[in-house]
Design a protein around this nucleic acid. Sequence first.
DNA 1: GTCTATACACCGATAGAC
DNA 2: GTCTATCGGTGTATAGAC
Lengths: 173, 173
Amino acid sequence: MDATEQVIREEGHAAVSSRRVAEVAGIQQGLVYYYFESMDDLLVATFQRRTARGMARYEKDARSDKPVAALWKDLNQGLDARMSFAFVSLASHNERVREVYTRFLSESRQLQCEAIARDAAARGIDISPATPMALAFILHSTSLMMGREAALGMTEGHEEVRRLLDGLLEKFA
Amino acid sequence: MDATEQVIREEGHAAVSSRRVAEVAGIQQGLVYYYFESMDDLLVATFQRRTARGMARYEKDARSDKPVAALWKDLNQGLDARMSFAFVSLASHNERVREVYTRFLSESRQLQCEAIARDAAARGIDISPATPMALAFILHSTSLMMGREAALGMTEGHEEVRRLLDGLLEKFA
DNA sequence: GTCTATACACCGATAGAC
DNA sequence: GTCTATCGGTGTATAGAC
């Protein structure tokens, strides 16, 4: 799974083959099929491990003493943009990957909504006209987009966006 | 190029091969190489055509009598999420596709920034603490994310996000 | 567990007939 | 312009030795 992630990151998901993964892992091609029934299984297992790690990170953020600040920091530093794109791209046309991805998206957003609502209530912060859901959505999408562009070598305007959101979230810090 | 787009949309960019594209287009495989020197050329040409059409749409929005409202409407209706993901995924590992994509992103954002700034000035609208750049970025990323999720069958929270942004952009309508 | 060897499908690209 | 035929390479997956 480590080798699979590496290939996706460096060469894209189209380059993931039993031969290439085996080469990176330092084993022979046939051995891949001793551990995974098919390449599809390997792919699904790899993404499942990723989403489990992602959820663990978000849960840790939610339990910290500054949930929203921790989440926002995590979204801006912890996202692996290239893996993320590969994930979406695959999810569009692979039912099993789509299930893994939509469950992760749904559960993590739910978690983030609750964290925002609880944090705002605890600190007496009024986020209107936004709602926890809208805020969670916007934080997620903007940080993902900045990660995407940064992965492609573009950072124009990112400082401005970050400054604006940092300011709006100031009371949570 | 139409056949290529169709294959990308329905089966993903990994399924784009001269044989598959030829089959969809109703021609023989070898003929693809009469019109395009390589599959890479076909892919780049296909995306180039898309970005040209995208820019034309944004320019039309910018010239309309309600630039920001037109842009926001366009972002929410005109984005082909699946093509968009394939584009990004490919751009990560194909230099020529990356160039096409980053130029498009950069030019379209520039255009949108100017449209927002001009529209706000003309209507005497104060968008602070946001800036034209930050606003363009957030509109783009949220609409893209909603398109992405909708393509995967998720629409939870979208109404809330749209309501919030519609409200914030109300003065532009 | 790990290897080698192999079957069979599909890939990009080219050659040459019409 | 469009076709058929073909090359070498790579893909998934399996069989069987050790």
